[in-house]
Simulated assay, not measured.
Amino acid sequence: MQMLALGFGALVYALIEGPARGWTDIRVLTLSAAAAVALLTFVAVELRTTDPMLDLHFFRDPVLSGAAVTAFMISFGMFGASFFLPLLLQDVMGWSPSSAGLAGLPMTALIVIAAPLSGAFTARCGPRIPLVTGLTLCAAALGGLSLYGEHARYLEYLWV
């Protein structure tokens, strides 16, 4: 458990410091190496213990692995958009915090609607089609956000 916390802590700190210090900075390289060693140690321990915290043998199943990678990618993209889009709207485009918050309501509403529907759809036709569809829609939406500059109007990227 300590190796996992150390590994992710070092990785997050390296990712935070990398853009500011440069990716070849000694501190960033040391943190990256420490993260790699700690995470590989965690994997080695988990593979050998009789009662692992995370049974890595589950990831031999390609459906489970695909679902886990897809969930990570979608969460990474959506959390990034949820963090940076309000900053863009407020700091670059000059919107008020209330206006920026209201701009996120359509995304929130669609998540509330799509979550139970995706569960029912997955139960009916299996995980592949919903996973591929969700990842494709998320990639299209995040790509769509990159099309607009600082003078974009709300209605231009509402589809995203």
Rank of each mutant, 00 (worst) to 15 (best):
W159V: 10
S75N: 09
V63E: 05
R128T: 13
F76K: 01
P116Q: 09
L110F: 11
V63K: 14
A44M: 11
V28Q: 06
F42S: 03
V112K: 02
L89E: 06
P62I: 11
A71L: 12
P116F: 06
W95N: 06
C125H: 13
V160N: 10
W95V: 02
L87C: 03
E46C: 01
G22S: 09
L155N: 13
A123N: 12
L64R: 13
M1A: 15
L31T: 02
L88E: 10
M93Q: 15
F79C: 01
G80D: 04
A103W: 04
G126F: 09
G66S: 08
I113E: 08
L40H: 07
L89S: 00
L15E: 09
A109E: 05
L40C: 11
Y13C: 15
Q90A: 02
P127D: 00
P127K: 13
L56M: 12
G119Q: 11
L56S: 06
L6G: 00
L40S: 13
A103R: 02
M1R: 14
L64W: 00
Q2E: 12
T136Q: 06
L137S: 12
R153P: 00
E17K: 15
V37H: 09
T136N: 07
A152D: 08
F79H: 05
V63F: 07
G126N: 10
T49M: 03
L131Y: 10
F8K: 03
A35N: 06
P19D: 05
I16P: 00
G126Y: 10
A114Y: 00
F83V: 01
R60T: 13
V45A: 08
V112M: 14
A33T: 15
L39R: 08
G144E: 05
S98C: 01
L105P: 01
G143P: 09
F79V: 07
C125T: 13
S96G: 11
V112R: 00
A109F: 14
A109C: 07
L87G: 00
V43M: 11
D91C: 01
A103D: 03
F76T: 00
W159R: 10
P106C: 06
Y148D: 04
A38Q: 04
G9I: 02
L135W: 10
V45W: 10
F59Q: 05
G94Y: 10
V28W: 02
Q2N: 14
F76D: 02
T133K: 02
L89A: 07
A67F: 08
L39T: 07
S98V: 14
G126A: 11
M93C: 02
V43H: 03
G104N: 10
L158A: 15
L64P: 00
G80I: 04
A152R: 05
P19N: 04
S99Y: 01
Q90G: 01
A123T: 11
A140Q: 08
